[in-house]
């Protein structure tokens, strides 16, 4: 489904952000990306989605998705290929447009990606809000983002992501900004939807506890480089790299929300 080969990226001024990163995600699989802050996890996700910051350039490597070389496509072909990709972001507040109602934001994406009529998009949005277990979905559709709780916003974004029936979702620390109790629900929700829709997920997180719950395989990242890559059971039972063991030792700290 997704193959990243020898991907390198540099920030302006030549600072290396990613160094020869290779990983692949099979259809329907959840692949974890772990590492401390600044390791380059989000940059990998952004490179796949085509939303790297202006200051960061890809210097080498390839990203193949669903048989196409994403980096070689023209902007419009790239947008076309992007229809099979979706993002579940870290901060659900800033990922929603503050001045538009939820309905407008969801149906825009659905109409654009699935070519639905306004009424069909509305129906699909409603159906997906049910599926992410939002009570009173009609009511939520009429709201502005600031009128919803963090957990609700994230459910809306998860609903939007899955509503487009993508083949791969990049989930960039989707629970970090949420309360601990909500974190568990959101995590379970993503796992359930991923299974029922058979969607592949590139799951970015600091938290090896989360990895154990949801991922099939993991890449451990440090300073833009992959130091270890293995099925999740192997990583948990016999972490090969000292850095991975250090991450494990530090894991309990990430169970708490940041101060």
């Amino acid at each position: 489904m997704l193959q990243i080969a020898q991907l390198s990226a540099a920030a302006r001024g030549g600072v290396g952000v990613l160094r020869a990163v290779s990983l692949s995600v099979a259809a329907g699989e959840v692949h974890g990306l772990v590492g401390t802050s600044g390791a380059g996890k989000s940059m990998i996700g952004r490179a796949v989605l085509g939303i790297l910051p202006d200051a960061v350039r890809i210097t080498a490597g390839r990203i193949r998705f669903d048989g196409r070389d994403l980096l070689g496509l023209s902007p419009s072909a790239r947008r076309q290929a992007g229809r099979d990709l979706a993002l579940i972001p870290q901060d659900p507040l800033s990922a929603l447009n503050p001045s538009r109602r939820i309905a407008a934001q969801m149906t825009d994406v659905l109409r654009h990606r699935l070519g639905l009529s306004a009424a069909a998009a509305q129906a699909r949005a409603l159906e997906m809000l049910h599926e992410v277990r939002i009570r009173e979905p009609d009511n939520v559709l009429r709201r502005y983002p600031h009128e919803l709780s963090g957990g609700m916003r994230q459910r809306v974004l998860i609903a939007t992501a899955f509503a487009c029936r993508p083949k791969l979702i990049v989930a960039d620390e989707p629970t970090t900004a949420l309360d601990v109790t909500v974190q568990k629900q959101i995590l379970r929700l993503i796992r359930d939807l991923q299974r029922s829709h058979a969607t592949a997920v590139l799951f970015v997180t600091h938290d090896l506890g989360v990895v154990a719950k949801i991922c099939g395989s993991v890449s451990v990242l440090r300073g833009g480089e992959i130091v270890e890559q293995a099925p999740v059971a192997d990583i948990i039972n016999h972490p090969a790299h000292a850095y991975t063991r250090a991450l494990f030792a530090a894991t309990p700290r990430y169970d708490r929300p940041p101060p």
């Binding site: 989605l49 085509g50 939303i51 992007g82 979706a86 800033s94 994406v109 654009h112 487009c164």
Partner: peptide, 16 residues
């Protein structure tokens, strides 16, 4: 803002 990134990732063109 992130929602612009989200829109780009969703494949919306610059004009939209």
């Amino acid at each position: 803002m992130d929602y612009i990134d989200a829109a780009v990732a969703a494949g919306l063109g610059p004009r939209a």
